[in-house]
C-alpha cells in the first residue's frame, strides 16, 4: 500500500503533528512517501526517515513557501497521482484541513478529518473521528476507493526508528490561477510554544482579575515548557490575544496536561479541552463546574497557589 503524507514545516522544521502523520501512515503498514513544500533544508527532510518515511518528495519552489490553499492542493494532488498513492495522510491544521478538502475533489477520494485512531480494516475501512467538538466520536466507513485521512493531534505516537529518507526533487508545473490569493504579511505570535501543538497548556480565566496578573501564568508555563491559553471572556476583553482563546469557537487543544487557573469551566470552554489527557483545575470556588471535568483539583486563591506550584515544579527539576 502506497501512502503519501503531506508534511508542514514552521521556521524550517517539520511540525510535530506532521511527524505524527508519518507515524500514523507507518503504523498502517504502508510504504510512506512524505511530501514537503517550499524551501526546507535537505537534512531536515532526510531525517523524516527516522520517523518512518522511505522517500521524501520536495517541491522546493520558493513560490510554495507561503501556504496558499489552492496551490498546495494542486501540488499534493499531482504528487498523489504521480506516486499512484492509495491514501493521503495529513495533520488537521489551519492549512492542512482546507487544503485536504480541495485535494479530495481533485483526486476523487473520500475524506475524513479529526481522525483520532488507526483505521479498523477487519470489515471495510473504518476510521474513528471526533465530532461535536470532542463530545462524541463517529465510526465512519471510507469505502474502497482512494482516501484522505486528516488526523487530530495524538492520533499516533511519534517513534524514532533510525535511518534516512531519500529526498527527490518534485517540480510540478504551477498554475498561476492557483496563486489568485496573495499573502501580504504574516504576524507570528511571540510565545515559544504553539498552543495547538503544545504538550502542556496553562490557561487563565476571569479569576485572574486583569491582564496585569498574567506574569504568574507565564512563569508557570515557562517552568513547564508550556503554551499559554485563556478563556473566551479573557480574549473578548482583550486581556489576551484571540489566538490564545481555548474553547468551542477558539483553539481546541489536546495536550498531555491542561492546567486551568481561575476558569469556571463553561461547557463551551470544556469543548476546547476535553481531549486533554490530564486536567488540573485551580479555582477558589469549590462549586466551579470545571472540577467535574478535572483529574486533579485545588480549591484556593490562584494568587497564592500558582506561585507555589511554579516553585514546586522548579524544585522537582
Amino acid at each position: 500500500m502506497s501512502i503519501l503524507v503531506f508534511v508542514e514545516s514552521a521556521e524550517g522544521k517539520i511540525k510535530k503533528t506532521s511527524l505524527e502523520a508519518i507515524a500514523y501512515a507507518k503504523e498502517m503498514g504502508g510504504e510512506v512517501t512524505a511530501l514537503a513544500l517550499g524551501e526546507i533544508a535537505t537534512a531536515e527532510l532526510e531525517d523524516l526517515g527516522n520517523y518512518g518515511a522511505t522517500k521524501v518528495l520536495h517541491a522546493a519552489d520558493s513560490k510554495l513557501n507561503d501556504g496558499i490553499i489552492q496551490a498546495y492542493a494542486s501540488v499534493i494532488a499531482h504528487a498523489f497521482e504521480q506516486e499512484s498513492a492509495e491514501i493521503l495522510v495529513l495533520a488537521n491544521s489551519s492549512l492542512g484541513t482546507p487544503v485536504s478538502a480541495r485535494v479530495a475533489l481533485k483526486i476523487e477520494a473520500s475524506l475524513v478529518s479529526n481522525v483520532v485512531d488507526l483505521p479498523d480494516t477487519t470489515d471495510g475501512f473504518k476510521v474513528k473521528r471526533s465530532i461535536y467538538t470532542g463530545k462524541a466520536f463517529a465510526l465512519v466507513d471510507m469505502g474502497s476507493g482512494k482516501k484522505i485521512i486528516a488526523i487530530k493531534k495524538n492520533a499516533a505516537e511519534v517513534k524514532e526508528i533510525g535511518g534516512k529518507a531519500t529526498v527527490e526533487a518534485f517540480s510540478p508545473a504551477l498554475d498561476d490561477k492557483d496563486f489568485a490569493t496573495q499573502i501580504t504579511s504574516i504576524d507570528k505570535a511571540t510565545g515559544d510554544v504553539l498552543l495547538p501543538e503544545a504538550e502542556i497548556v496553562v490557561s487563565g480565566g476571569r479569576g485572574l482579575k486583569g491582564p496585569e496578573n498574567w506574569g504568574m501564568v507565564e512563569d508557570l508555563a515557562s517552568s513547564l515548557g508550556a503554551a499559554t491559553g485563556c478563556s473566551k471572556p479573557v480574549s473578548d476583553m482583550d486581556w489576551r490575544p484571540h489566538h490564545e482563546h481555548v474553547g468551542q469557537t477558539g483553539v481546541k487543544v489536546s495536550p498531555q496536561l491542561y492546567i486551568a487557573i481561575g476558569i469556571s469551566g463553561a461547557i463551551q470552554h470544556l469543548a476546547g479541552v476535553n481531549s486533554s489527557k490530564y486536567i488540573v483545575v485551580i479555582n477558589k470556588d469549590p462549586e466551579a463546574p470545571f472540577f467535574k471535568a478535572a483529574d486533579y483539583g485545588i480549591v484556593g486563591d490562584a494568587f497564592e497557589v500558582v506561585p507555589k506550584l511554579t516553585e514546586a515544579i522548579k524544585n522537582a527539576q
Partner: peptide, 18 residues
C-alpha cells in the same frame, strides 16, 4: 463519499483527586 457506522461517547472521567 462516506458511510456512518455508529456513534460513540467518550469514556467518562474518573474521580477527581483534590
Amino acid at each position: 463519499a462516506t458511510v456512518l457506522d455508529k456513534y460513540e461517547l467518550p469514556p467518562s472521567k474518573g474521580e477527581i483527586k483534590m
